[in-house]
Structures are given as C-alpha cells and as structure tokens.
Nucleic acid binder design. Sequence first.
DNA 1: TAGATTGTTAATCGATTAACAATC
DNA 2: TAGATTGTTAATCGATTAACAATC
Lengths: 208, 208
Amino acid sequence: MKKGKVSNAVIRRLPRYYRTLDTLYREGTVRISSSALGESMGVTASQIRQDLSCFGEFGQQGYGYNVADLRQALSDILGMNAGYTSVLVGAGNLGRALMRNFHFNKNGFSLSAAFDVDPKIVGTVLNGYPIYSMDSLDDYLAEHKPSIGVLTVPKYAAQSVAERLIAGGVRGIWNFTNIELDVSDSNVVVESVHFADSLLTLSYLISE
Amino acid sequence: MKKGKVSNAVIRRLPRYYRTLDTLYREGTVRISSSALGESMGVTASQIRQDLSCFGEFGQQGYGYNVADLRQALSDILGMNAGYTSVLVGAGNLGRALMRNFHFNKNGFSLSAAFDVDPKIVGTVLNGYPIYSMDSLDDYLAEHKPSIGVLTVPKYAAQSVAERLIAGGVRGIWNFTNIELDVSDSNVVVESVHFADSLLTLSYLISE
DNA sequence: TAGATTGTTAATCGATTAACAATC
DNA sequence: TAGATTGTTAATCGATTAACAATC
C-alpha cells in the first residue's frame, strides 16, 4: 500500500491525524482545510499537506478535505482495515487493564485470547477474552497465527516470551515491559510503551 | 539547572540514556566510551557526545565516561532528585496497575495518594497507597501541593479532573486518557501516554 | 609517552516551512 | 467567474554526523 520511503517523523504523526479526523467525523464535520486542521492540531498547514502527499492525493483545490474520506484513507494507511489479530501475554494488572479498557477493535485489532501462568485465572474469561495457560501458547500461535503479541508479562519473562511469540510467527510485538527486547528477526517490529521514559520526560519538563 | 535551549529530540532521548546507564551501573560496568555506548544503543557516538554537551562536560579524554557519575548526572538533569511528589486520580484498572507495578520511587516521584469516585474502594489502601474520595481532592491538593497528577480517569471525566489538578497547583499532568487535554495555563506541562497511537504505529509498521 | 577519546566546530543531511502554479 | 485551497517545488531551518584539535 505505501509508496516510497516515509520518514519516521511522518509515521508518528499519522495516528494523531487519524484521531483528530475521527473526532471531527463523529462531531459531524463534513469538510476541513489543511489550514483549519493545522490550527486545531497546532501544526502548520504545509506540514499536513506535505505529510499526506506521501500517500496520495486526498484533497480538492478550493475545497479542502472531505472528513469522512480522509479519515477512511488514514485508517487504510495505518492498516486498521487489514484484519490484524492479536494475543495478549501476561494477564496481570496491566494486561487486565488493557483487556477491560482498551478498545482493540476500534483500532483495527481483534484480540482473540490472553495467556497467563497463574492457575487461578487460567480458564476464566475476562471481558469476553479467554485466558489460557502459558503452556498452550505455542500451539495456539501455530494454529491461529496472530499478527501481533501484546507483551504485558513481568520484566524477567519478557525476553523469553518475546522469543516464543516470534517463533510463533507474530509480525509485531507491542511491548509494555521496560526492557529493550533483543529481536534479531528483522521482519518483526517491536513498538514499546515505556512508562518510565514518559514520566521522566515530564519530570525534565517541569524542572526547566 | 538546564542551560540554553535543549531541543525536543534531545529531551526525548535523555530517559533512554539514563535507563541504559542505570543498567550498566547495576551490572557493575565502571567506564564506557561514547562509541561503546552508542554501539549498544544503536545511535552514533557523535550524537551522544553532542546531546550530553547540552548539559555540561561529563567525560574525560582518552577514558570515556564514568558510568556511576554519568548515571547520576543524568538523573539530576531529569529532575529525579528534585523530590517531586504525585497523586493519582482514577483508581480503575489502569490506575491500580500503575499503583501496583510502576515504581514511582525509582523514577524520582513519590506517590502520596490516589483518588476515586467508587465508594467501595474509597478508604482502602492499595500497595501502601491510600485511596481517598474525589470529594477530598481539592483540599488535598491545597494542603500537599503535589508536583504532578497522574490522570487515569475515564475519558469523560478527563478534562474536568485536569482542571481541578491545575487549579490545585500541579506543574505537570501525566495523562493516560486518550483525549487531547485543553490546558490554557502555559506553566503546566501535559505528557500523554497514547496507547492507541502506539498500537497504530505498530499497525502501520507491520503493514509496510 | 602513545593511544584513546573527549568536546566542539564544520559539513551534511533531512525535515519543516514558504511560495505558487494548477484547478476546483 | 472569483475565491479558495490543493499538491509540489524551492528555500529555510534544524538535527545529525564527521572531523579534529585538545588532552587525559
């Protein structure tokens, strides 16, 4: 779908474009110009037009962008309609918080199952998601071939579980553990949510 | 403490420098050169030296950097030793996951209390942190003047709670809600953890 | 001392912004 | 049509990398 080399800076802005367009769409806004969109997001109109031009032509001279169409285009670009599937490994506090609160479906990912070592929760169902034993992870991966694995295990288990996920064929790991995963397979993408980095950035900013 | 204008790109790299140095420190590494550090982090030695030069001189020609000293310097730069305090608002799944698993102290923030609307948990203590009623939030802020507020409330409550935190004098908000907070006070910093943006970035990357 | 490695200046590269012809 | 706004090219700005004198 994508063409040419899209810079990381652009890629990181795409979700926010989508999110803003989605809000406008839900509010019933029909059209918006790059300058109005830029104003509302605190970026320049030039940047928006330049960024979008990496993927095609979505606007119309003299009119701007149709909100519904651009939202749809962005969701396609982001792969939200590709039918990606996911499994979650580690149904502790954070894993359960994601299972209960995070809208996987709204973001294009169906979550099919969770895995944990704790026999007290293995076999239960949380918010509609079954929790299976870690022992069955590898067989499950082989059978269902999920696109990504959500990694919410304790730190010490992170690397070994990541390797099992990769051996099982996932294409991406959504990493919530605070370690740098050592992933040699260059076809597997790791996206990390580093809570501590975020808090320390805030700490720096309030220190200035 | 900081001098001059430090670019956002540099600021965002600081926590990772700290994290890497901390790991080296715990492993007992005494000294490291910018090239060795760069190699292990996947960045150039030039960038590390250039970044650090924003804050002072921490190395020694022919030797490199003393790991313990540089780690300490980074923690100072990040404000980890400034005695910052925090409160958490919204003790739902995510809030409780943070209270149980996130090491506030290791990151220089003492968490003094949590607040929630649910009468079933108000008055309880979780992992040593007392959970108080939302009704008492404003008085608590006035009395204790925490540095930051951790915002883990439901979406619909986010903006109004943020305003109460700001009125109560916090200098920063660590925002886990998926909305763009409208903060007019330019002295208050908002740092957001956008789960959906992170997952959508991963989605894009595996689509390539 | 000789070798290593810093901090910093200069060169390069890439990303953002400005400008404008095309055109709805 | 006239006004508005795009997509894109050119100009600017900023960030990264390379080079090297200083020096431990």
